[in-house]
């Protein structure tokens, strides 16, 4: 094959995307776990790890631009590389959501605030699982799988609504804790947004496979989550 160099560079890039994905997935799960355990020092580690996630994203972006400049990719190669660029940005943002949750853990300190922890854990597990499978579909250019994963976003939205209601109920019952409880709304928001970012990655998978670029998650309306 006359494009061995390009193929090799693309494969390396895909491997690195999976690596970045697993760093982000772990950060998200760890963040919710530190919240559950109120482990401030573990939360601080997530904070520090986010720097590594950001650095990796920029290193990948740089490598990708060099491939575009030196190999002049076209058609599917071009769609793939453009999609990798979008995907690494989405991954970094999911990492930021994990960092945001870690920040909440640090801010809450040893507060005894009641939390919808079950919903938070389920949201994190669901989002991480979606992320894991979305990246696998992304690498395999499996548009059908990507479309399936997007449908699961509704479950995360439902959990968000449940968590949100629980937090608001707590606020109404104890107005003095509104400041802290408000931080929990951020946790729910970050988890919900993480799943939304996964649907964006799925859109890119469909784009690589079909050349069609459109929003897959059209149910992202006001009645669901913000």
């Amino acid at each position: 094959m006359p494009r061995e160099t390009l193929d090799r560079q693309i494969h390396q890039l895909q491997d690195e995307v999976l690596l970045l994905g697993s760093m982000v997935e772990q950060a998200l799960l760890n963040a919710v776990d530190t919240l559950k355990r109120r482990d401030i020092s573990a939360a601080q580690k997530i904070f520090a790890n986010d720097i590594a996630i950001n650095e990796k994203r920029y290193a990948l972006e740089n490598a990708l631009i060099i491939i575009i400049a030196t190999q002049q990719p076209m058609a599917r190669d071009l769609r793939l590389l453009a999609s990798v660029l979008e995907t690494i940005i989405e991954l970094e943002r999911i990492g930021d959501y994990a960092k945001g949750i870690a920040k909440v853990v640090i801010r809450l300190g040893d507060s005894t605030l009641p939390m919808p922890m079950r919903e938070f854990s389920q949201m994190a597990e669901q989002a991480a699982s979606m992320l894991h499978r979305a990246l696998s579909a992304f690498i395999n250019e499996d548009a059908a799988k990507a479309r399936e994963i997007v449908l699961e976003d509704d479950q995360v939205d439902e959990l968000y609504n449940k968590a949100y209601r629980a937090i608001v109920t707590t606020m109404i019952a104890n107005p003095e804790i509104i400041d802290d409880a408000n931080l929990l709304v951020w946790v729910a928001h970050n988890l919900e947004r993480a799943a939304d970012r996964v649907t964006n990655i799925c859109e890119r998978t469909v784009y690589i496979a079909t050349g069609e670029l459109f929003e897959l998650d059209t149910d992202d309306s006001e009645e669901t989550a913000y």
Binding site: M1, R3, L6, P73, M74, A75
Partner: peptide, 19 residues
């Protein structure tokens, strides 16, 4: 043609995988 060719032969040629 250059972002989303319909025919595999076009795809192979413009991505440099021809021959």
């Amino acid at each position: 043609i250059f972002t989303n060719p319909r025919d595999q032969r076009t795809e192979d040629y413009i991505t440099g995988r021809f021959g």
